[in-house]
């Protein structure tokens, strides 16, 4: 949340990418004592032309969805969002889109940081008392894929 973002620009991929970087952090928390539960990243309102990329869906399907939006859907621009592990895939999709359009499409990338929340539940709740909650940051990318204005 360091920079002003465009409306609707945030990262809401599925939980899959979130897992990857967090388990390393969990080790520090003495894994015997606590169970780690990740809460969903903040969901934000979504326009028609927002595409949130995740690691669960097939890559081709996601690419096809973007193409459909640009060609059939009549949108001049779409936003591709990726969080954590899905950043790579978001970039990939954007580049693929550009390549397949023979350079007509243009890209504008933005990065941001997203705050994520983890719950740490003690295994033995009666003794340990307070469950903990902590926040950690994760990177996200927002790529605007658009047809440039004629003038």
């Amino acid at each position: 949340m360091t920079e002003p973002r465009n409306p609707g620009m945030s990262s809401v991929p599925q939980t899959a990418p979130v897992h990857t970087d967090s388990s390393s952090a969990a080790v520090e928390m003495d894994p015997v004592e606590y169970t780690l539960r990740k809460r969903l990243p903040r969901k934000l309102p979504k326009r028609r032309n927002d595409v949130y990329v995740n690691m669960k869906t097939d890559f081709r399907a996601q690419l096809a969805r973007c193409q459909k939006l640009l060609e059939g859907g009549g949108h001049r621009e779409i936003c591709v969002h990726g969080l954590g592990l899905a950043i790579n895939r978001a970039i990939n999709i954007a580049l693929q889109l550009q390549a397949s359009s023979q350079g007509v499409l243009q890209l504008a990338a933005n990065t941001s940081t997203v705050e994520l929340v983890d719950d740490l539940e003690p295994e033995d709740p009666d003794e340990a008392g307070e469950p903990m909650t902590r926040t950690r940051n994760n990177s996200a990318i927002h790529i605007k894929v658009f047809y440039p204005d004629p003038q």
Binding site: L40, R42, K43, D119
Partner: peptide, 9 residues
């Protein structure tokens, strides 16, 4: 908040 799932369970 946007989604119910964001809250502490």
């Amino acid at each position: 908040i946007y989604s119910t799932g964001e809250l502490p369970p």
